[in-house]
């Protein structure tokens, strides 16, 4: 796009006067944000990689305590996975509506995504409370420490994702689908789908493989 846009901007710049600034920075300011956010996600990915590596090392150190096979309720995990997966596609619908300019439809889909996000979090908190109540808290064994650290960090990310999502619902409601809001929605889209990718690792390595004898 650069050639055409640049010359366009240059012409517009002559008319507007102050636009030589735009001429210089026009190349890809928005892409800069998205690329920067992608970099953040990749560094976040390394945080999770550290937690996964910790779990891989400590995951079978039960210290005479309960094992994953005894603790995990796979039906609950399957339900949780479904919540997150469905929330991923409803966020996709929100993005499609937003790009078509359907404001209220976009907000509605964001709301649906938020509800599924909250359902995921409630189930996870229920699971954590249940485990701690059974005496399988993070202090019980190396396995449980790394389990709570990994799954808890993911849950914390989802929590902040939901807060961000509600904020954006209000932003879009108040200011409409402006360029800034579309950019923010795109960033949250990347964040949300990224969390789903991390969850693939969590349910595979922690829950499913932890249940295997």
């Amino acid at each position: 796009m650069s050639e055409f846009t640049a010359s366009n901007q240059a012409e517009a710049g002559n008319a507007v006067g102050d636009a030589s600034r735009y001429y210089v920075t026009e190349h890809h300011p928005e892409n800069g944000t998205l690329l920067g956010f992608w970099m953040y996600l990749m560094s976040d990915c390394l945080i999770f990689a550290c937690l996964f590596a910790t779990y891989a090392v400590l995951g079978r150190n039960y210290a005479g305590g309960p094992s994953g096979a005894e603790l995990f309720d796979l039906k609950l995990v399957a339900l949780n996975t479904a919540f997150l997966l469905v929330s991923s596609i409803t966020y996709g619908f929100a993005m499609l509506s937003a790009h078509k300019g359907f404001k209220s439809k976009a907000i509605l889909w964001l709301g649906v995504t938020g509800v599924f996000g909250l359902a995921f979090l409630s189930l996870e908190i229920y699971e954590f409370v249940h485990l701690i109540h059974e005496g399988a808290g993070p202090q019980r064994s190396g396995f449980l420490t790394s389990f709570f650290a990994l799954v808890g960090t993911h849950g914390l990310h989802v929590t902040f994702g939901v807060i961000w999502l509600v904020t954006l619902m209000f932003q879009v409601g108040k200011h409409g689908l402006t360029v800034e809001n579309l950019r923010r929605l795109t960033c949250l889209s990347m964040f949300w789908h990224f969390l789903d990718v991390i969850w693939i690792g969590v349910f595979t390595f922690v829950y499913l493989m932890g249940t295997l004898p």
Binding site: M1, T5, N8, Q9, A12, V16, A19, Y22, E26, H28, P29, E30, N31, L34, H99, G101, H175, G176, L177, T178, V179, N181, L182, R183, T186
Partner: peptide, 19 residues
């Protein structure tokens, strides 16, 4: 729609924000 919410350079940005 992005032109609605934005001024003269909204169009180009709108295209970019889509990525």
């Amino acid at each position: 729609h992005s032109n609605h919410g934005h001024d003269h350079h909204g169009h180009h940005h709108g295209h970019d924000a889509g990525g």
